[in-house]
Structure formats: structure tokens, C-alpha cells
Design a protein around this nucleic acid. Structure first.
Lengths: 156, 156
DNA sequence: CGATAATTGACTATTTTAGTTGGTTAAGTA
DNA sequence: TACTTAACCAACTAAAATAGTCAATTATCG
């Protein structure tokens, strides 16, 4: 699992989507202006997020994007995986010329690390991040408009 | 802490350096041919590794590179940090316009993740990887020439 | 002195990331 | 039906990071 700014953009956008989800879908234009990410780049990212079944696009006026599941079911790992190309860790996978040299050793290390991060991020969901935010709001001076979830949100 | 192929190259090269360290320094040309990394790219990487005091260059015939410390004192984290640009995680650090929005939340997440990986990789040393390799050699069919450390190696 | 190999810097190529442009398609609204 | 909205799509450009090339300098060994 690679960690680049691309995944970070995707997580930011998804978080924005959740935080501003009322019963109506959230448009990419809104997210773009709020998070200062270019609309077209968001389109690329959401194309992948949609294909990974994390979000659902709703066309036409009043349209936008909506989560497919509740935020507690969407892990950070799944978001990052969705936007990144699958990694090619099969360089010396099971080949017969494998000599357990430094290439192989590094491969093992990276695979282990990847698993580790994967494990870590798969246990953190969008809901966790929001809960963390709510915890903080009490102790900080930040005066952000509170997004209330007084009505049950639509998903899928 | 970013995880890219650059750090992976650096770790691979450092591992190769350790595995082929007799009492004489190891040249970049050797590492380049063994690991199929371009010499000039290795030069760039080792320039940084040297500035981070992980290796020491020895000029002239019979020269090459040598570890500064014993392999059990060189963590994977230190290698990756050495070759990567310091990350600019100060986008919304302590600014007054911080609203704990999704940008901030993602920042917190990333910072936490970075710490986590840092912690994980700082506990793995080059010596650990070699030990892992030695464990494996007994159970595999690989017939790599064994690098014996029958003489104490020079460092620094 | 001559060969070796690090050291340095400028420069090029490739890939990834990010953004732009210009459409089409679906759905809601007047 | 016409118009607007906003997803969806594809080709293209720009910027950045990664990877590699080339040429020169410097230290050291024989």
C-alpha cells in the first residue's frame, strides 16, 4: 500500500462529503471549493471511488455524490486503495532465480510493512475521524458551524 | 513519512552493502550491477545517506562505501528518512483559521499514521533483516553464496 | 604519474500527480 | 419541449517526483 498525496486528497474529499451530507447529495463543485482541490481532479478520484462502490453518483440538478454505506463501514484503507493503482509486488514473488538477496529481503520488508499499514488503516473509519473531530471541538476555540445529523441520512 | 520506491531503493542498496561488506568498502558500481539500480541514481541516494551519517565514503582505489555504525544500530526508518525530502505537514498546523474541517482531520490522520509507520520502521534494523534472511536460508532451496562474517567488520 | 572511485552539478527522460478543456449523458425544472 | 444542472468521460497539458545520463573534480592508492 502506497502512501502518497493522492490518497490523502481522496480521504479529505470523502471526509468533506460525510461532514456536509444532509439528505441531499454533495456536488463535487462544493467539495472542490471547500477543500481547494480542482474539480477535474476530484472527478478522476471519484470515478475510482465510484467504481470501488464507495460512493454513488446522482445526476442532474440536485445531484451529486452520496456514500454507499454508513461512515462507520468505510475504512480509510478502502479509500486509499480505491484511488491507487494496484501495487506490483510480484517482482521476485516465487521465481526460481530468487536468491534471497537484498532485493528479496526488501520485498519481504515492504510486503510486511504494507500489511501493517493496511491493517492499521482498515481499522479506522470515516466515522472514527468524525468522532475524533467532535471530541476536539469541545476543547478548542474553533467556531465551525456544527453539522448536525438530526435526520437519518440516506446512503446507497 | 512517505513511502515510495525511492526509500525502497535506498533500503535495498543498504542491505546489499551490509551483505557484501567484508573488511573492504563496497563500491557503488558493485551494488549497481547486483541490484540493477543505475549508478548515478545510487550516487544521488548515497549522497544523502552520507549526509545523514549512515555511510562513509572512501575515495580512491579500493574505496567505496562503508556503514557508519553496526547494522543493528541502523533502522529502516533512518534510511528512508535520509533519502526523502522532509514532509511539509504544516499546512494547517496551528493557524487561527483552523476550523477542524476535513483538511485538518485528514492532517491529524496523516500525522498519526506517519508516527505509526515511523515507530514501526524505527524498530527494524538492517541486522534484523539479515537475521530474517538467515532463518529462511535453512528452509528454502535457494543456493545463494553465503556471506560469512568470520572477521569483525570495520565501521565508521 | 596514472588508475580508481567518491563527489558534485547540470542536464535529460520517464512516470505520477494535478489540472484543463470540451464534450456527452441523465435527470430535474420551468 | 427547452433549459439547466451535474455526473461522466476522454484527450490533453502542466508540474512535480523519480530515475537516469553526462561531464568534471577531488582524494587516494599503487
Amino acid at each position: 500500500m502506497r502512501l502518497t498525496t493522492k490518497g490523502r486528497y481522496a480521504v479529505t474529499a470523502m471526509l468533506d462529503l460525510v461532514l456536509h451530507s444532509q439528505n441531499t447529495p454533495v456536488t463535487l463543485t462544493e467539495i472542490a471549493t471547500r477543500q481547494t482541490i480542482s474539480l477535474s481532479y476530484l472527478e478522476q478520484l471519484f470515478s475510482r471511488l465510484r467504481k470501488a462502490d464507495l460512493v454513488k453518483g446522482v445526476r442532474g440538478p440536485g445531484g451529486g455524490y452520496r456514500l454507499r454505506q454508513t461512515p462507520d463501514l468505510i475504512s480509510i484503507a478502502s479509500i486509499i486503495e480505491a484511488v491507487n493503482e494496484p501495487i506490483d509486488s510480484t517482482k521476485c514473488g516465487g521465481e526460481e532465480n530468487c536468491q534471497h538477496d537484498s532485493v528479496c529481503l526488501t520485498h519481504d520488508l515492504w510486503a510486511g510493512l504494507s500489511d501493517h499499514i493496511q491493517d492499521y488503516l482498515s481499522k479506522i473509519t470515516l466515522a472514527d475521524l468524525i468522532a475524533q473531530r467532535d471530541d476536539r471541538r469541545n476543547t478548542t476555540k474553533c467556531s465551525e458551524a456544527i453539522v448536525k445529523f438530526d435526520k437519518p441520512l440516506k446512503y446507497g
